[in-house]
Design a protein around this nucleic acid. Structure first.
Length: 201
DNA sequence: CGGCCGATCCACT
DNA sequence: GTGGATCGGCCGA
């Protein structure tokens, strides 16, 4: 009996926990680097989720969130960092799951070169911008199909994790009304999960 | 480990 | 003009 493939047209909140334990492989730069996803956050659509880039309306930056599910939504923030999401929900609606942290399980040497400031291997992809850095993901990866056989970025879904091993909190750095939704999911006890920071005011 | 702070630039107001 | 879905260095405990 095979595992049912998650319905990527579902709401990001429902897809997000199913991504825990999945394997994301980047061939950017030629040498594959694979990360086992240990922490994610879900973001919703127009008028629904004040914490989401898509809350107000579609714009050039967030346009990928409104496209078909299964693609990468990559955005630039804080003047220097890239962050990567999996787009969810039907085309025309906005939804995405931010990949916040993971464990580098292949290509560790390449990841170390890209992340010279990492004090230990556990820090290589411990944080959303660290994860993209370790994988070599930049804005050029925005819109890539994560389930295409020839894609530079590929996501291989794992067996669903037992619910008792999944931690749930509010989202990191999301305050105001957006803090009401506990849409951060992580693998309990995993050392590669990033430290939780409540929203600043 | 926890707190503070500067970096650096782009999207949106 | 404002403020980020962040990070790393430095400090003190």
């Amino acid at each position: 009996m095979t595992r049912p493939r998650p319905d990527l047209t579902a709401h990001a909140r429902d897809v997000a926990p199913l991504l825990l334990g999945s394997l994301l492989t980047s061939r950017v730069g030629g040498i594959p680097v694979t990360v086992r996803i240990t922490e994610v956050e879900a973001y919703g659509g127009v008028g629904q989720d004040p914490g989401s880039h898509a809350f107000r309306r579609e714009t050039p930056r967030n346009a990928t969130m409104f496209g078909p599910p299964g693609r990468a939504y990559v955005y630039f923030t804080y003047g220097m960092h890239w962050c990567m999401n999996l787009v969810t929900g039907p085309s025309g609606t906005a939804g995405a799951v931010l990949l916040r942290a993971g464990q580098v399980v292949a290509g560790v040497d390449v990841a170390r070169e890209r992340r010279p400031s990492a004090r230990s291997d556990r820090d290589l992809a411990r944080g959303p911008a660290r994860l993209t850095s370790a994988l070599g993901v930049t804005g050029e990866c925005d819109g890539l199909n994560l389930f295409g056989t020839r894609s530079l970025l590929r996501l291989a879904l794992a067996e669903p994790v037992e619910v008792e091993h999944i931690g749930v909190t509010a989202r990191t750095g999301v305050g105001g009304a957006g803090a009401a939704t506990p849409w951060r999911f992580y693998l309990s006890g995993e050392p590669t999960v990033s430290p939780y920071r409540p929203a600043a005011r």
